[in-house]
Design a binder for these strands. Structure first.
Lengths: 345, 345
DNA sequence: GTGAAAGCGCTAACAT
DNA sequence: ATGTTAGCGCTTTCAC
């Protein structure tokens, strides 16, 4: 049994010595930088392979880049976010960049801890998905490191933005239900207290889209919004409230698939059937919605595209930190399934 | 509009100057190291607060620790893993350590990339959840950095291990179904080719547990295993095959909840009902299983406990890299729900 | 208990 | 095109 003495890590000096060149030369090859002849490159690469050298990102970061992109996801459990993540990693797979994720964070305090941790670890760029932090914090982050905010509508000169058009998405659902013949279409929203967030967050936009669409269809009188939260419990509570109405809605537009789950649970508990007694629609087109026995009508946000665009903007900004900030808005699509049908009345 | 010139980051030198002490002193305070008087500590802390100083983890890593723990999850989409993650982060919340996750990786190549990236970024410790990499790779990783492997049964002197007793878990399900009166209990497993993994991976242990339990109950003749994969599609395909049997099983033990989802989908498609025509059980006790309208009998792995134990072992090993390696095995519990009932024949 | 000074592994100026 | 040298921000000897 030999003692598990970890052999000192191979450094750039070892490579330089082995290849009989300077460390600068090795560094240039590593970064594909200008000023190294093809022969030099070949010689260095061979030495790197022979010694199994890998640069230490922390050391690189002290002078240049760490080749690390940080992604902050608000909730690992929400099955929509992996789509965005796939777009990000897929786009970065052929580059030298490595993606690391912050652990699920709910609330401003957690977000601050994660964003600061990422900055302190010298990350080259950040992708923040649906952050709840106040705008000034985001701008402070973006000042420290190139940042793209995904899924939040407010725009800032400090960072780039990628969003889905949530107003349009909500209109898709309302239009779909109205076309089926529904008039009493209720909406369950995520209650927002913060004034900035009540404009910038997707949930607020969806609620707004619902209102706009109802009015446009002349259904002003039928507008019925319940404020709970974007959780399964929130959906359950909201549905309980709606089912207790003297005149029940014939359709419910839940602001997220996870909310629709709670609605379905409450409906099942009340001994009612979907879509026979009540049509239910969600938002996000999660795997849950696609699941056969559930078959929930939903809105697809093209998460992969969002991730791809976020990376594109981020790499652009890493290359040129002074370019004017951009905002990309993607169009959602309706995914009708069996949870919505004509009302039976 | 002021130009977004990022003001140079506050360094340990600034703090030292501001507090009128040496950088060594500041460093000692940061690390709660020996050799600083209470007055010194107070003075330094005040300077840190006043300047809003945060140490640069990358720079710290070059000499000491980065205070970063890397967690590698095989698949973000599997709703079981967040439990483990919560255990890890919950345990680390009050420490100086920060958790960063590797993005979902399927396959050895991806795992190698992520583990190497974590090592190269100077992480102080790694938690690898259900890795599929060959043992030698894991041991190489563990030689470079303290490592805990979670959810994989093989044990190694190089790393610590935390697992659920999957054999016992499978026995819980089989015992439960048998107690309900089932005899033709089929199992859908994840097909394993690699010889090491066919011993070490949880899926293999569950299949083994199924076989052992069936034999112990004298149901040798009824043993019926279908090999697909731990995916929804795998469950769907497996169920198709089982439903096509001349004599159908009365119960199916799917190796994971996600597999059970596929089974439910196939059963619904065949116009059969659960548990009327077929009892279905899963494994992992995911939120999906707990969802009211589904109500899937499952096995709870105490993921939070697994994460907690992993962190405990990891911190121990960071403190003493030479302590003998440990293996913690946790006991799963049965969570009976409405997807299993007496057979109707 | 305190501080000066020497690195950690790498990149960026600056020679040559 | 190549090599020399001076740091990046911290921790760690090792003096005092």
């Amino acid at each position: 049994m030999e003692p598990p003495v970890s052999p000192r890590r191979v450094t750039i000096v070892d490579v330089a010595r082995h290849a009989q060149v300077s460390t600068t030369a090795v560094s240039k090859v590593l970064r594909n930088a200008y000023g190294a002849s093809p022969e030099m490159r070949a010689k260095v690469r061979r030495a790197i392979d022979e010694l199994g050298y890998r640069p230490l990102a922390a050391a690189r970061g002290l002078r240049g880049q760490t080749y690390t992109i940080g992604v902050m996801l608000p909730d690992i459990r929400n099955p929509f976010f992996p789509e965005i993540l796939d777009g990000v990693t897929g786009c970065l797979a052929d580059t030298d960049y490595q993606v690391l994720l912050g652990p699920g964070c709910n609330g401003e305090k957690e977000e601050a801890r994660v964003t600061e941790a990422m900055i302190d670890r010298g990350m080259d760029g950040l992708v923040l998905v649906a952050p709840v932090s106040p705008r000034p914090h985001l701008e402070r982050v973006a000042t420290a490191v190139p940042t793209v905010v995904v899924g939040r509508h407010g725009h800032s000169p400090a960072y780039d933005t990628v969003t889905d058009d949530d107003v349009a998405g909500a209109a898709l659902i309302v239009g779909h239900l109205a076309a089926l013949g529904h008039r009493r279409i209720a909406h369950i929203e995520h209650h927002e207290t913060d004034p900035t967030r009540s404009v910038e967050m997707p949930n607020a936009q969806r609620a707004d889209g619902y209102l706009q669409a109802m009015r446009k269809l002349g259904l002003d009188e039928e507008i019925d919004v319940v404020s709970t939260s974007y959780t399964q419990q929130g959906g359950y509570d909201g549905a309980k409230e709606l089912l207790a109405r003297p005149v029940r809605p014939t359709a419910v537009f839940a602001g997220a698939d996870i909310v629709a789950m709670g609605v379905l649970e409450a409906v099942a508990e009340a001994g009612l059937s979907v879509p026979g007694d009540l049509s239910v629609a969600g938002y996000d087109n999660t795997t849950f919605a696609a699941f056969g026995p559930i078959s929930l009508t939903s809105v697809d946000q093209a998460g992969y595209e969002m991730g791809k665009n976020a990376v594109r903007l981020l790499l652009e900004r890493i290359a040129d930190r002074d370019r004017p900030s951009a905002k990309v808005t993607l169009s959602p699509t309706l995914v009708p399934r069996r949870s919505t049908a004509q009302p039976s009345y």
